[in-house]
């Protein structure tokens, strides 16, 4: 098992740069982070982009599709979207895009709040190749391989440890 250290701040900078054109197009765009990792990333992006509207946070625990398998997340907290979602351009931020199920839950929850004008998906890391739903991110900090597992710690400092599975000897 190999562990790689990732420079998260560099990735945030890169994503900030990629988000700027979008904000030029929709100056009033609002940001939502998915608790917990996505919220940390969103906080950094929110700060760097100097967005004026408060950051929204959603907890998708109530919307997970595996409730009947794993039950309720014990640290569940209420979602907090301090503005009206209706007709807004949203930037949805998560830490890792993997099967796509989290994003599905998040979209469902967002639509329970109202009908946004658009949703742009932003993710720090993208474990490509393991998608179980037809969802892709618009902005990706860094692509990974599906086999790479990782651990995100935060919020200060934000750190990612990536483990590569050891090469299977023939």
């Amino acid at each position: 098992m190999q562990e790689l250290d990732i420079d998260v701040n560099a990735l945030i900078d890169k994503m900030t740069a990629e988000l700027k054109p979008l904000l030029k197009k929709h100056p009033g765009a609002k940001m939502i982070g998915i608790r917990t990792g996505g919220e940390w990333i969103a906080q950094s992006l929110h700060q760097q982009l100097e967005l004026t509207d408060e950051l929204g946070v959603i907890d998708i625990s109530f919307y997970r599709d595996d409730f009947s398998k794993i039950g309720l997340n014990p640290t569940i907290k209420p979602s907090h979207i301090p503005w009206d979602v209706e007709d807004q351009h949203l930037i949805l931020v998560d830490d890792v895009l993997f099967t796509g199920r989290t994003i599905r839950s998040a979209l469902n929850e967002i639509f329970d709040f109202g009908r946004p004008a658009s949703v742009t998906l932003v993710t720090l890391l993208d474990r490509k190749g393991c998608r179980e739903l037809p969802l892709q991110a618009d902005i990706v900090g860094m692509p990974l391989k599906c086999e790479q597992t990782l651990k995100l710690t935060g919020p200060e400092p934000l750190k990612v440890m990536i483990s590569e599975p050891a090469e299977v000897s023939a």
């Binding site: 109530f62 309720l72 209420p78 329970d112």
Partner: peptide, 25 residues
């Protein structure tokens, strides 16, 4: 656990309770 979970069903802004798909089916 019950009291904390109950808290998470209440929208802190509006004090309203949103519908969630938790017990669908």
């Amino acid at each position: 656990e019950i009291l904390d979970t109950a808290e998470s069903f209440i929208d802190p802004n509006s004090n309203k309770i949103k519908k969630v798909p938790l017990l669908r089916g």
